[in-house]
Amino acid sequence: KLLSSIEQACDICRLKKLKCSKEKPKCAKCLKNNWECRYSPKTKRSPLTRAHLTEVESRLERLE
C-alpha cells in the first residue's frame, strides 16, 4: 500500500492505542462500548529543516 492511502484509526482508538477496525460511521470498538466515534483530519507533519537536523546532530555528539 502507498503511504498516502493508509487509513487512520478513529480518535479514541488512537488515543487509547487500540486496534481500530476503521469502519465508518462507527468502528467496532466504539460501537461495542457506545463511545462517540470521530475521525479527525490527518495532520500534516512539517518537513525537517536543516537547522533542526544540525541541532539534533550536535546534541547527539555531546551525549556520545
Rank of each mutant, 00 (worst) to 15 (best):
R59N: 05
K17V: 02
K44D: 01
R45W: 00
L15N: 14
T54P: 12
A51G: 06
C13W: 03
V56C: 04
K32L: 03
L2H: 12
C13L: 06
E36D: 13
N34W: 07
L31R: 08
L15R: 15
E61Q: 14
K42H: 07
C27R: 10
R14D: 08
R50W: 06
I12Q: 13
I6R: 15
E23D: 11
H52L: 10
R14M: 05
A51C: 06
L60N: 14
K1A: 08
W35E: 09
V56F: 09
N33P: 08
A51I: 03
C20K: 06
K26P: 00
K19I: 05
R38T: 05
C30P: 05
T54Y: 05
S58T: 15
K19P: 03
K29P: 01
T43N: 12
E57N: 06
E55C: 05
N33I: 06
R14C: 08
S5E: 12
T43C: 07
K26S: 13
R45D: 05
R59K: 14
C13A: 07
S4L: 10
L63F: 03
I6G: 15
S4I: 12
R38Q: 13
P41D: 03
E64M: 12
L63H: 06
K17M: 03
P25H: 11
C30N: 07
L3P: 15
T43V: 15
A9R: 09
C10L: 00
E61V: 08
S4C: 14
P41Y: 02
R50F: 06
V56P: 13
A51W: 12
R50H: 02
A9N: 10
R14G: 00
L60Q: 05
C27F: 02
E64V: 08
C10M: 05
E64N: 14
K26G: 07
R59S: 08
A28W: 06
K42D: 04
R38I: 10
P47T: 01
C20Q: 06
R50M: 01
R14N: 11
K44Q: 06
K22T: 03
K44G: 01
R45A: 02
K1G: 04
L53R: 02
C37F: 08
S46Y: 09
K22H: 08
P41R: 10
K42Y: 01
R45E: 13
L63M: 10
K44P: 11
Y39E: 01
R38V: 13
L31K: 07
R59M: 07
K26Y: 11
K19G: 12
C27G: 10
C30F: 04
K16W: 07
C37R: 03
D11M: 04
R14V: 03
E36R: 00
K32I: 04
K19T: 05
Y39R: 09
R45K: 13
Y39I: 03
K17A: 04
E36H: 05
E23I: 08
E23S: 08
N33D: 01
R38F: 11
R62K: 15
L18C: 15
L3R: 14
L3V: 14
